[in-house]
Simulated scan of single mutants.
Amino acid sequence: MAADYEVQMLNKGSDGDTMVFEPAFLQIQPGDTVTFVPTDKGHNAESIKDLIPEGGTEFKGKINEQISVTFDVPGAYAYKCLPHFGMGMVGLIVVGDDPANLADIENAKVPPKAAEEFAELTAMIGQ
């Protein structure tokens, strides 16, 4: 019974923040699918190299392209909008209940605004 989730790529989120994925955090189960929807133009969704679990599948959507990804390997998957990465347009998907690679994301060398966002997103795990 796999579930399907949808993440919007937005210029402005419901909380007023700009350049966001909404929701930016998902906790899902292995086999679930997430569809990234370019609600506003000029965005993409792609995994961040070395910030997905070992054995996890990397993904990279084109600008203005809807992309669906099925997550089979448990762990934490950090992703970004390439054009707006420096502005903190990142998201986190946790597959399963115990993301073994979480420290990789918490200690990642990413732009300062993205690091702030990841700190907020990792604090949501298990809540």
Rank of each mutant, 00 (worst) to 15 (best):
L26V: 07
S68H: 03
P23Y: 04
P99Q: 06
M1C: 15
H84F: 15
V110C: 05
D32Q: 08
G75R: 00
K109P: 07
A76I: 09
H43E: 13
G55L: 00
P38S: 10
K109G: 12
P99I: 01
D15V: 07
G13H: 11
E117A: 15
G91C: 02
A3Y: 11
A76M: 06
L10Y: 08
K62Q: 11
P83Q: 09
M19H: 12
D98E: 13
F71V: 03
L92T: 04
P74Q: 01
Q127N: 15
G91Q: 07
D32K: 00
A76H: 05
E117L: 10
G13Y: 11
G13A: 10
M89R: 02
K60H: 12
D98C: 04
Q29S: 14
E22S: 13
S68D: 06
M89F: 11
K41C: 11
A119W: 05
S14G: 05
T39D: 09
I125C: 09
T57A: 15
V69Y: 00
P83H: 01
A100P: 01
L51S: 02
P30A: 07
L51R: 04
D50I: 04
L102H: 02
M87R: 08
A123Q: 14
I52P: 03
D32L: 06
E22C: 04
M1R: 10
K80I: 12
P111W: 09
E6N: 08
V90Y: 05
E116T: 13
N44L: 14
E54G: 08
F85S: 06
A2G: 08
D72A: 14
D32P: 01
T122P: 03
M9P: 00
